[in-house]
């Protein structure tokens, strides 16, 4: 994007794209039967949030790019979350011998 011309892509395009990605992630999170796919849906939602942060950082906070710093931290936390989540998944699979989310009902009343 050249500094004197406005960007040819409006801010709303990024926001709508992130909204599509987030809603897809939410639907997958609710409806997946496979536990690995649930983790993938969480990653999709985190990426949607990151797109929002980056778009706001460039369009509304162009000098102090605080949104980009936040995105770095979100990426860090997402990596830690993926590692711990997959370790929990492996431990669950070892005990229950399934990855079906409907059968992980230990804490159900």
């Amino acid at each position: 994007m050249s500094p004197d011309l406005p960007s040819p892509i409006p801010l709303q395009a990024y926001l709508v794209l992130a909204a599509i990605l987030f809603c897809t992630g939410v639907w997958g999170l609710i409806n997946s039967r496979n536990a690995v796919r649930v983790l993938m849906s969480i990653e999709l939602m985190l990426n949607a949030v990151n797109i929002n942060l980056m778009a706001f950082s460039t369009y509304l906070d162009g000098q102090l790019i605080r949104g980009q710093v936040f995105t770095i931290f979100v990426i860090t936390v997402a990596a830690a979350e993926a590692a711990v989540g997959l370790a929990i998944l492996l431990s669950l699979y070892r005990n229950r011998e399934t990855v079906d989310m409907e059968r992980f009902n230990l804490l159900r009343w």
Binding site: M1, P3, P6, L11, Q12, L15, V16, A19, I20, F22, C23, V26, T58, Y59, L60, D61, G62, Q63, I65
Partner: peptide, 23 residues
């Protein structure tokens, strides 16, 4: 949820154009 987010994105009065991006 998607419709809500789209409505928020299009009805909010964003402070555009913001500062010049540092690139």
């Amino acid at each position: 949820l998607f419709l809500l987010l789209v409505r928020v994105a299009f009805t909010t009065d964003w402070a555009l154009p913001g500062p010049t991006p540092i690139g």
